[in-house]
Structure formats: C-alpha cells, structure tokens
Write a protein that binds this DNA or RNA. Structure first.
Lengths: 232, 232
DNA sequence: ATTACTAGCATCCGAGTAG
DNA sequence: TCTACTCGGATGCTAGTAA
C-alpha cells in the first residue's frame, strides 16, 4: 500500500491554490515552483505527485491549454478536513480552550430540577465561585460532526474539569458531574455540565450560569450560541 | 537543503500525541505504530525521522527509560501553525465565511459622519437591504496576527464584496467602499466596511448595522466581539 | 526492552527528451 | 510551451544487529 501521508503537503498546497472550490489551471512546472520554498522540487516530480494524487482519487485533473485543470475531490477534501481537525485538536489541548457552537432549544426541565437540589446547588456555588446559580440550564443542540467530536473530547477530559460529587437520598442516587468554566457568546460566564453516566447525548451541550442567559443575551429557541469552554 | 515538507506528517502526529503541551514518552517502535494506518513504517524509519525532526529543530528529545521524551519546540509549533493557517485559509475560501474577533473600542466618530452623508447612506440601505443604518460604526481592535491576516484577506477579496460607489461634492472626493455582510456575535446583522485607500489600519475592523449594536448586544469598550463575515 | 548503526535492496528524483 | 516517459544516480527503506 502506498504511503498516503507523503502526499499531504502536495494536497495542502493545491488547497491553498484554491483547488477546493474550483478547477485551477496550473502547469506542472508552475506547481513545482509554487510548492517550493527554500528547497525545490522538479517539474518531473510535480508531475508524478499529481498523478499519485489522482491515483489516490484525491484530485481529478484534465488537460488545459497551458497545463492542466485540477480540482480536489470529495475524498481529498475529507482528507484535508482530517488533517485540519488533527491540528485543531492539538491546538485546543495546547490552549486549553474549546469553542463549540450549538442551537438553543428548550429541554424538559430536568436540568433546572437538579440544580435546585441543595446538595448540588451548594457545590456549584462554591466550586465554580458563582454568586448563585440561575434555576434552569441552557440546552444547545450541536449541528455537525465536528462540534460533536469536541463535545466528546470534553467527555474524555473530565479529569481536568471541576468535580461535583454525587450523593444519595432516601429514594435514589444522584451521580457525580464534571463542570468546565465557559463563556457564552463571548460575554457571560457559565459552565458546561458533563454528566458521567452510561448514556449521554453526544449532540447536546448543557450549560448553567449565575445569570439568566436567555434574558441577558436576548436568546430565543433556534438561535446559534457560541460557547468557549476552558479546560482548566 | 532538506525537503522539510516531508516531515510535516510526522510533526503533525507528534502534535496529535500531545507533544505541543508537554514532553511525551514514546519509543520509536510505538511511534512507528501510531503513525501507521493502513501503510506501515518501520521502527528504523521512525527513529530516523525523529532525528531529522530534531535536526530541523522542530523537536527536542532526550532518552527515557522506555523510549524517549519528545517535545515540540517553538519553531516546530510555528511550523504547525503555518500548516493550520494554510488549511484554515483554504476552508475559509471554500465556505466563503471568515470569523474574526476583536475588542470593542471607541473611534473618533468619522465612521458615523460618513454614514450620514446621503450619497453613501442611500447606497448602504439599498445595496445591503438594510431598513436603515444606525448612525455610528462599531470599531474592533484586532489583537493577534491571525485576525489581522484575515482582515487582510478581506482587503484582497474586495471583488467579491458589495460595492458602494464614491462621489464628489464641492469640497472633496469621497472614495468607494466595499461591504461584506456579517453577523455580529452570532446574532445581529451588519456589514464590514473595507475602504480602498492607500492607508488602512490592518488591526481595525469597522462595522455598520441597521441596529444599535452597542445597545442591543449590551456591549462596552473592551468587550470581545465575534464577527462572521460572508464573502458573498 | 531500548536507539540507531550498516548493508543491501527498493524507491524516488531529476536530467534528458519524445510526443 | 506542455506532460510524462526512461534511466542512472541519489536517497530512503527495512532487516539484522551492536550497544
């Protein structure tokens, strides 16, 4: 099997030249020049690499008058997205910041119920250094794969979050919760709730805050909300 | 000169393994396995690649009990940022969306003055399909290199924007302006102004809107504001 | 277990060049 | 001009192995 990773730099350069959006018209020698910075590659190598990229089905090409038209295919685009996400993940871990967007919707109110339980409430206030906790959570529906991956990353990083202990009462057990400090729409402080239990919804992000977020940010269902989550 | 791009995939993989944030402890054979998916590389190749990465000064390594500690250097980090930005640019062009953040500050009021000129005002209303234009611009100060690069991209993409013609009156000439539709803090519509003239401030983004943004978004100087610019 | 050397084979590169 | 072939030299690869 071919070592596909060797082709990454060439694919990236084609993307930079705009081959993601449209067919670009380029000759092998010009591509060789565009690709090179400091070190150079030859026209022949450029030609061969373009053929290999086509074999991989990451690009399609057809002859033009002064070179060839090249366009990145869907599968080439997916490969680029993979690389982009790889890098984005690495930088998120470095910066300890994850930006997630979701669409506001109205949940079934369990969130608000749990917050009101004193054993949870006092922990939220103390451990998050909130003056109070507004009675109700903000539920965001994540709309794409990428945001769900970030959501999953939070689920996996619970060691870094703020731990809210579970407890028992006469009738049932209440599990532990991990919180991450966050700012909502760049502006208002809050925290993301990550519940450790076997089933959690990968496309839902639940947020609490000392403030009435819906009111203070003028939000209504269906609005897009940005959350910047701080990993520690 | 060495063909540094060949090393990109290896550097990216090390970043994915966390070597941006901390020294990671990994053996050459484990790295070979982690790196491979489908196609495989040998322990020997992994060893050599790590040495080449060190020669490039993109990583530093030192022996550990069960392998070696590896950490990406500043210059390796810069290289990764370069790749990340390359990809981000390509996807921005594809999606025709640019997200920029900046800090709100109070300008000198010229913006508001120009808007009030009837020859501009009527064009804003018609071409942007705004009901009216609020008398005053929102000035954002861009805080990092990357946002400034995006700002520059707008300046270069004026062909795709909405053109507001210039005009003359008795005393002076008023130049043309290009506008891009935008949403501010995910919520309120507006437009970014790009003024074609020899001097423009690369770290300032000027925004108009039908609405009083400061009031409706509850903004004050120093607040971080997110702008999503639509290239067409 | 490691890393990383050497040897020898495989692959890749670019100059030359055909079409 | 262009692409892309051949071919000899350079480089890269892995197996074997030393430390």
């Amino acid at each position: 099997m071919k070592k596909t990773k060797d082709l990454w730099p060439y694919l990236i350069m084609l993307a930079k030249l705009g081959a993601l959006t449209k067919e670009i018209d380029i000759s092998t020698s010009r591509f060789a020049r565009e690709f090179s910075e400091g070190a150079t590659i030859s026209q022949q190598t450029a030609s061969r690499k373009l053929n290999e990229l086509e074999e991989q089905k990451w690009i399609i090409k057809r002859p033009s008058i002064k070179g060839q038209y090249i366009r990145i295919t869907q599968s080439g685009e997916q490969e680029l997205e993979k690389i982009r996400d790889l890098l984005a993940d690495a930088f998120m871990i470095r910066d300890k910041i994850i930006d997630i967007q979701g669409e506001l919707f109205t949940g079934m109110g369990e969130g608000g119920h749990y917050i009101s339980l004193e054993k949870y409430y006092t922990q939220f206030v103390e451990k998050l250094a909130f003056k109070k906790v507004f009675a109700g959570t903000l539920n965001l529906k994540l709309k794409n794969r990428r945001d769900m991956e970030k959501r999953r990353l939070l689920q996996d990083k619970t060691t870094q979050g703020i731990r809210i202990d579970g407890f028992k009462d006469a009738t049932r057990t209440y599990g532990p919760v991990t919180c991450f400090k966050a700012t909502i729409n760049n502006k208002i402080e809050g925290a993301v709730l990550v519940i450790q239990r076997t089933s959690w919804k990968e496309d839902v992000l639940e947020i609490i805050s000392p403030h009435n977020l819906r009111e203070q940010l003028g939000l209504k269902d269906g609005d897009l909300v940005s959350v910047r989550v701080f990993l520690e």
